[in-house]
């Protein structure tokens, strides 16, 4: 699994070749934003490194995913399992932070109950990330030890733009298989120093930083702390942060019926909503601060307790999209210093 080099032209050829047989997803400019979309040609792709509005999780765990459908006739109910096409898929140009979110989601979808819908898509998808050229003001990925604008966590291949071509680092066998299958397009690796320089530059561009030292210990004991009310006061309870978060994974399964047909759909849900924990006759989280607390503690304590990793990758989408400028890095700072 030696490193390789691919010229920009050859990468386009690779994308076009792949798109012939399998599903290729890549960031595409749509209006004023970038979104991961299925592409049919390398012309559609935008690899300029701008962060996509929606995270990569959407490709594996869609906002509204049909699980089964059913038909009723007299007293009979016919259940139709949703069938996936089983096609191999490739994601090209994902940000390293988005890719790093996938191992985090793998834990929760593959821990006790094995979620076949997610795991199946994950299994047949190869992830080709790209070292960030541009870093957003909201990015703070380097605050997490294993993530940076050039980290390999969660990726199968990592591309780094070194001018005329991309330097290709092979991370997994899945990544290697792509190279094997298209070996004529890849050249022997050279110019390591240029790659290292680009990666170092990218890391240095990330200015926002948060110290996580001591956070977990604080969260272990501060559930009842009045600070939660204070820091969450401006939170309005929309789901912009959770829906656009690459690691948030809460969902609600509902049956949607028409006259004689129906479907069981899994939809994204959010702990920020007032009805999220509503049960018949009881609501354990009646106030917004409790919901906000849940979001923070889930990411930085419950997840750590259970899977020994933090459920945040520092992509900055929650900071960028919050209508009231609720900044998770500042929230953490306040908790740590409380």
């Amino acid at each position: 699994m030696a490193d390789k080099l691919i010229s920009k032209e050859d990468l386009n050829t690779l994308i076009d070749n792949l798109a012939k047989d399998i599903d290729v997803f890549a960031p595409v400019k749509k209006g004023d934003m970038y979104l991961y979309s299925k592409i049919s040609s390398s012309k559609d792709i935008s690899l300029n490194g701008k962060n996509t509005k929606k995270p990569l999780k959407e490709v594996f765990f869609g906002q509204s995913e049909e699980l089964i459908s059913f038909k009723t006739a007299k007293k009979e109910i016919e259940i139709i399992e949703s069938e996936e096409d089983g096609k191999k898929r490739v994601i090209i140009g994902s940000r390293p932070c988005d890719a790093a979110a996938l191992p985090i989601l793998d834990e929760v979808f593959g821990w006790d109950y094995k979620d076949s819908f997610y795991l199946d898509k994950r299994e047949r998808t190869t992830i080709i990330s790209i070292t960030c050229n541009e870093v957003e003001e909201s990015c703070f990925c380097t605050s997490f030890g294993n993530i940076s604008p050039s980290s390999k966590e969660g990726s199968d291949l990592l591309l780094t733009d070194i001018g005329e071509s991309f330097y290709v680092e092979v991370v997994t066998d899945k990544g290697d298989a792509i190279i094997e299958g298209n070996s004529n397009l890849f050249k022997k690796a050279e110019n390591i120093s240029q790659k290292d320089k680009r990666q170092k530059e990218a890391v240095e561009k990330v200015k926002r930083r948060v110290e996580l030292e001591g956070l977990k210990e604080k969260l272990d004991i501060n559930f009842e702390d009045p600070i939660w009310k204070e820091i969450s006061q401006k939170c309005l309870g929309c789901a912009a942060c959770t829906y656009l978060c690459p690691t948030c994974h809460c969902f609600d399964i509902q049956d949607e019926m028409k006259k004689s047909t129906g479907k069981r759909v899994r939809n994204w849900d959010s702990c920020a909503f007032g009805h999220f924990t509503q049960m018949p006759g009881h609501q354990p989280r009646t106030e917004q601060f409790q919901r906000f607390r849940q979001r923070v503690i889930h990411k930085f304590k419950y997840y750590v307790d259970k899977f020994n990793k933090t459920a945040c990758v520092g992509c900055g989408r929650c900071i960028e999209n919050c209508p009231v400028n609720m900044d998770i890095t500042k929230v953490i700072e306040k908790i740590v210093s409380s």
């Binding site: 929606k54 906002q63 309005l236 309870g237 929309c238 789901a239 912009a240 959770t242 829906y243 656009l244 994204w268 959010s270 909503f273 209508p323 009231v324």
Partner: peptide, 10 residues
């Protein structure tokens, strides 16, 4: 629209 209801909440 992703139905995050930011429009409603704000």
């Amino acid at each position: 629209c992703i139905r995050c209801y930011a429009c409603r909440q704000v």
